[in-house]
């Protein structure tokens, strides 16, 4: 049975997030020929109509209003509900980003429907949409279905392939006017502190790049920041790097420092004493670069490179730049 699918397309810093296109590829699967709409918010949003069309959107609802340039949960919920009321979707897909995961549950409750968060896979089984999502921090997975008429799910970024774009496709652009109601302005934004170039907070970061004694000096340690910036990662340090004065103690990861559980932890020149492992071994993916093939860090690493970090680091920077330019 075909379904009408609505996808929330999210921009950040002038670019459309990949997860929005990944959600569109899910939409194509679950629509079964039904109509697919996307919606974009903010004054710059009409620029995304084409790319959304290429990735399968039949309609794009554009809410070109400056109040939507800055994310606020109440406003986004209100604006999104306006689109929902207009399009009347059977399925709603939202990227599980900081903003998406924030307002999606409000939509679910406003519609009084169930919601399946943070999906890493979506399948059609006997006409039913089956969502797979991690539980216990990825130590197990659960398959879920919704019992409602409107199915709402958030999609974890970078898990579902976005599919090949079809540049011949076009979409109908529907501009909706939006004015925030008084009640949606209950929360006021006073200021946004952009992360300083070195500012991603360790405990909250999805990617952490840490340096140890192998960075050899303060200058050596500083070299981590280029990669960190490229990956929007936080920089951490082992206790010995802090002791040696290469890094500040506020960056220390470990038993007596901070405990981090990012998706990706890259340990550069860290041998992997238990004191350090206690602070990071629950990271989802661990990468180790160390000269010493016997270093205990390799025992917990998912991927390891035996080599000098100062040789490897610039190569990684290059490769990440390539990857980024490919996906852009």
């Amino acid at each position: 049975m075909s379904k009408k699918v609505l996808v929330f397309a999210e921009g950040r810093e002038g670019r459309l997030r990949n997860v929005s296109l990944e959600a569109l590829s899910v939409a194509k699967l679950v629509a079964e020929g039904g109509e697919i709409a996307a919606t974009v918010f903010g004054t710059q949003s009409s620029q995304f109509v084409d790319i959304l069309a290429h990735h399968g959107a039949d309609k794009v609802y554009v809410l070109d209003h400056s109040s939507l340039d800055q994310y606020l949960i109440e406003i986004y919920k209100e604006a999104f509900m306006q689109v929902v009321n207009e399009f009347k979707p059977d399925v709603i897909l939202i990227g599980h980003t900081a903003n998406g995961r924030d307002f999606a549950p409000k939509i679910a409750q406003a519609l009084e429907v169930g919601m399946i968060s943070d999906c890493t896979a979506v399948d059609l089984v006997d006409g039913k949409i089956v969502f797979t999502r991690p539980i216990y921090a990825g130590k197990a997975f659960v398959k879920k279905v919704s019992k409602d008429d409107i199915i709402l799910a958030t999609i974890r970024p970078n898990n579902i392939s976005m599919g090949e774009p079809d540049s011949s496709r076009t979409a109908e652009m529907i501009e909706l006017s939006y004015t925030p109601s008084e009640s949606s302005l209950r929360v006021q934004i006073k200021d946004v502190l952009r992360k300083a170039s070195k500012g991603v907070d360790l405990t909250e970061a999805n990617i952490v790049i840490s340096g140890g004694r192998g960075t050899k000096s303060k200058e050596g340690f500083e070299k981590l920041y280029e990669l960190a910036e490229l990956l929007n990662a936080a920089v951490g340090a082992s206790r010995s790097a802090c002791d040696e004065g290469y890094a500040d103690y506020s960056l220390q990861v470990g038993q007596t420092g901070k405990v981090v559980t990012p998706d990706l932890y890259i340990a550069l020149g860290i041998s992997g004493a238990i004191q350090h492992l206690a602070g990071m071994s629950n990271s989802k993916i661990i990468v180790a670069v160390n000269k010493d093939p016997e270093a205990p860090i390799f025992q917990v690493a998912d991927y390891g490179i035996v080599g000098d970090l100062f040789e490897v680091l610039p190569m990684l920077v290059e490769e990440v730049k390539k990857l980024k330019s490919e996906s852009a």
Binding site: M115, A140, F141, K143, K147, I286, F298, A301, Y303, G304
Partner: peptide, 16 residues
């Protein structure tokens, strides 16, 4: 409003 139909464990984490 939703139903769990299956729980499974991820494939064993391979040795690094």
């Amino acid at each position: 409003k939703t139903e769990e139909i299956d729980i499974f464990l991820p494939p064993k984490k391979e040795a690094g």
